[in-house]
Structures are given as structure tokens and as C-alpha cells.
Simulated scan of single mutants.
Amino acid sequence: MKKVGIIGGSGFIGSHITKTFLNNGFEVKVSATDITNENKYKHLMEFEHSDHLYISELNVEDKSVLREFVKDCDIVIHGGTPFQLDVKDPQTELFVPTIKGTENFLEVVNDIPSIEKVVFIASVAAYNTNFPLPPDGKSALDSISEEDTPFMSKESHPYAQAKFIANETVNTFIKTHPNLDFEIVSVSPVAVFGKSLSNREDSTSTGLQFLLKNKIAPNPFVQMLFDTDADFAIVNVKDVAKAVLKAATIDGLHSKNFLITSETYSVSDVSLMLNGLPPKNKAKIIYQNNMATSQLGISFQNVKDTLREYST
């Protein structure tokens, strides 16, 4: 059995990725920032094939511990960067763990001979830090694909800026290391919604669905979503997990960064669907998924069904 190390493998997206790899015959090692807090990862033990699951404590800013985590892995998935909308100190809460963690990770995996593939869970922010608003120079109806020049603004949310810079760090590493012994692939999901596999209450993605369903705005970012009735591109969390598996197991994808996206609806329509009501408008296709569909073989679930999953 091949072994995959999943950094962030017990979170909202990570749990689905962990389950997907277990179901596809892998040994899976999942990181935990505090292994004594079993509430963070005990739900993983209920998965089928959990006898092939291992939990290891990890701090991505500690290179020696990081090296120990990845040293016997064939594949490593890096999805352990913080996703926070309420931020008091962007530097310590987002920029350092996201960017420095990425730098440390790249330095470490470059020295591990067993590694065949590295997959980064990036973000739509790698292409547009203004998300869900359009990048400067585009209208709300203009499409966005991997062919567009990535847009970054220092006025964007710190999380988006950190993810953009981390993705640029990966791109620079690839350019300056042309003879790597392993492939690096990134997937960049839009807003990831759907059903959680745990009862954890610290998931920003699950929390955002709750806020949109109940029309609660606890911070300026969510208030902006309501005020602008922003067009929100959404993808099902299970489709993200499938995309990560494909990116990890299909050869010849080195240096590619796939947009992982389904349909786009206005926030008001998202709220209606989360409450079991039909949307007032038809779905739009703003963020393109042609590259993921053709090269990863992903068929994306429609947003109506994704939002129904959250509520059931």
C-alpha cells in the first residue's frame, strides 16, 4: 500500500480527503496540531478502513517535526493552512503559518527521496484575491479561468492575500527547481460547501454556510456578502476530495493549478437554497472548470444538491 500524508486531514475539507484516500486503498497519515485533543480527529476513526489510518502531531513551522511526518510518505497533501475570516493579527494568524509553513514544507519535501507527488490545496484566491467579487478590470459576468493573469490586491482579505503569496511561493520553487524527482500539483477550490463529516464547531466553511442560511453577519466580510448580494461560486467538498485524489494519482500534471468549481449563485439565492427554497435566478458559470473536467476527469455536482446536503 502506498502511504499518503495529509496535513490538515481532520478539517472540513481534509476529512473528506482522508476518507477518499482510505476508500482507495492507501495508508493515510493525518496531522494533528495537538494530539491530546481527540475531539479534533476522533471522527476519522469511524471511517471504513481506519485500521490504515495514523494520527501524528505536527507543527508546520517546525521543520524537524515536519520532516519526521513526511519521511515515509509516497504522496503528501498540504491542506493545513489556516482558514479564518475573523482576524486580529493577520501577520501571526495568517501570513506566517501560511507562507512560512509553505516555505518550510517545500524545503523539507525536496530532501525526501520517497516522495512521488505533492498536492497543495490552494484557493481561488490564487487567481483572484477579491473573491467572491470580480478582480479589478472584470465585471461580475466575466468568466475566469486558469488562463487569466492572477489578480492580487492588498485591499483584499488577509486570508486571500496569504493564500495568493503562498501559491506564488510554490510557483517560484517550481521554476527554480527544474529537475525535481517528484511532481507538484495544486488545486484551487472556490467556496467549499456541503456536509461535514464531524461535529467540530471550528470549521469556517461549515460556519459560513450557517451564517448565510440564517442571514447573520458577525464580521465585515460576511456583511459585505449580504450588502453586495455577491455572486458566490461554490463547489461540493466531496468534489474537492475527488480532485485531490486525481491530482495525486495521475502522472504528468507537474506545475498545474486546477480551479475546482461548479456553479455561481448570488448570496441571496444561496440563502434561499440553504433554507430549502428554490433560487430566484438561474445558475451562472463564472469560474471555469474545463481543465479539471478534462484532465482530472471530475464531474461537478450542482450547487442545489450541494446546499441540500448541508441542510440534511
Rank of each mutant, 00 (worst) to 15 (best):
K63V: 14
E147R: 10
S255T: 11
V87L: 14
N275F: 10
F95N: 03
Q84R: 15
D181H: 14
A140W: 08
N236M: 06
H52N: 14
E93A: 04
N179E: 02
H78F: 15
M291Q: 12
F258E: 01
R67S: 11
E147T: 10
K19I: 02
H49A: 11
T102K: 10
E107W: 05
I260F: 06
P279V: 14
R308T: 15
L106G: 00
L225M: 13
G11V: 08
G252P: 08
D148W: 09
L211H: 03
P150I: 05
K138V: 07
I285D: 03
I250L: 14
I286C: 01
K246D: 04
S255W: 06
H78C: 13
D142R: 00
A230H: 06
S50T: 03
H254L: 08
E57T: 02
A217N: 02
Q223L: 04
S153I: 06
K195I: 07
T129Y: 11
L53M: 04
P158K: 10
T98G: 02
K2N: 14
N171G: 09
I286N: 04
K304H: 15
N214H: 12
F300V: 09
F151T: 10
A162Q: 03
F182S: 11
K280V: 13
R67Q: 11
T98A: 00
T261V: 14
I35M: 01
T36R: 04
N257Y: 01
Q288D: 09
N275A: 12
A125L: 02
S311I: 15
G79L: 11
F226M: 07
H157E: 06
A191G: 12
T249M: 11
I298W: 08
V70A: 12
H157T: 03
N59M: 00
G8M: 03
I6D: 02
D148I: 02
I285S: 04
F210D: 15
S10F: 13
G194C: 10
T98M: 05
E116F: 08
G276N: 13
D305A: 15
G207L: 07
S145Q: 09
K29N: 04
K238P: 08
F300Y: 14
S31A: 05
T18V: 07
F12H: 09
F21Y: 06
N167K: 10
F69S: 05
S205G: 09
P82Q: 12
Q223F: 00
I216L: 12
D239P: 08
Q288I: 12
V270I: 15
I184Y: 03
E263Y: 04
N167C: 05
E27L: 10
F164K: 01
K117M: 13
F300C: 12
G79R: 08
Q209P: 09
T102I: 07
V190Q: 00
G11F: 08
D231I: 13
G137S: 06
N199F: 08
F193R: 02
E38C: 02
D34P: 00
K19L: 02
K175D: 14
A247L: 10
D251I: 03
K138W: 02
E146S: 02
E107G: 07
T206P: 01
F47Q: 03
